[in-house]
Design a protein around this nucleic acid. Structure first.
Lengths: 186, 186
DNA sequence: GATCGTCGAGAACGCTCGTTCTCGTTGATC
DNA sequence: GATCAACGAGAACGAGCGTTCTCGACGATC
């Protein structure tokens, strides 16, 4: 039961934090959405800060499995690099898309909460390593990875603010050019 | 006097909002930093929301003049496109760099404050138009502009979270590839 | 059936914060 | 010098929020 509660709380908090911003969501709102007592909530998480970190941990898992799922559906090593942007396009198209939860959390609380800043940094570093590994598998040069990651990052914020998924197409087209150039020079 | 106060308040609020996050800064802190009375503060800005918008307006001006200053120092139309990333590198190197203030504000309050969301959207759209114009001046294809803008956007968030200015170098290198490819195909 | 730990509902507490009000002072005008 | 508007300092107010506490109900154990 304690585990089920935990999941319900994290899911509810994730939805609320992401859609409204962390500071705009009180613990009472989380309780209402999760349909748990405040007592049970604080039994699972000693503080709101802890809950925020747990939410980001969950989001990290979903992002990682989502991206790697999209990538692993493709065979060609160079096409796999582009699958990332197709995944982004899909995500941006969701009606409740509001940018990268990590970037949003970092901008809001990164300066005040070093633990949160560390979680966000780790998340982005993890993604960078993943892209680097895909590049290496494809036999591409090491400098390609960071360029592809910057494109993915830019697509997320651009799409969030513009409110359209166009940025995914632009990022994908740019990635095609970068990949082609990288392998042409090799 | 009222104008001097206004500027002092906006400057103080900008520094505080940017370094700590908007929600983490009270009007009392702004008053202390600006060395103005609370009464004078509310004479200039009817609410915190208004002050936030004024801060973003100021930031838009500084960004615009900073970028165009860097661009106009270069003559070659294609090199001008790359000057953007040199400007970013310089900015990222500043010790108090903490990402794009518009992205941070949007992530924190965009969902709760439509007026703020509009200001942020306008700011990004303005930058996009500026890049598009540079591309056109250089005789490049229209699709290059959005790709270069996505790179700039990604560099800002990546640099903010990683805490290094490496992303500016990666974005610049990617931009070189994109520009070369765009003009080679033409 | 008495006892005891656990729980949910929600009141309560303490703090922060946005905003307004009070009041004593100042500085210009006649 | 009297008047009056404007001002600064800071108290005050009201709301929201993170967190804890109270109290009554429930369920298991002996």
């Amino acid at each position: 039961m304690t585990t089920e509660n935990r999941q319900r709380i994290v899911d509810a908090a994730d939805a609320l934090f992401y859609s409204r911003g962390i500071g705009q969501v009180g613990m009472d709102a989380v309780r209402d959405e999760a349909q748990v007592s405040l007592r049970a909530l604080y039994k699972e998480f000693a503080s709101k800060d802890e809950l925020v970190v747990a939410v980001l941990d969950k989001r990290h898992g979903m992002w990682t499995s989502g991206v790697s799922g999209a990538v692993e559906a493709i065979d060609d090593p160079r096409e796999r690099l582009l699958a990332i942007y197709d995944y982004l396009a899909e995500w941006f198209g969701e009606s409740d898309f509001r940018g990268c939860g990590f970037i949003n959390a970092f901008g809001e609380l990164g300066a005040a909460n070093p633990e949160l800043a560390r979680v966000v940094r780790d998340h982005k570093a993890d993604f960078q390593r993943y892209v680097d590994a895909l590049v290496e598998d494809a036999g591409g040069p090491a400098w390609l990875g960071p360029q592809l990651a910057v494109l993915a990052e830019g697509a997320q914020t651009t799409a969030a603010i513009a409110g359209t998924s166009d940025a995914a197409r632009h990022a994908r087209a740019a990635a095609v050019t970068l990949v082609d150039a990288a392998f042409a020079r090799a």
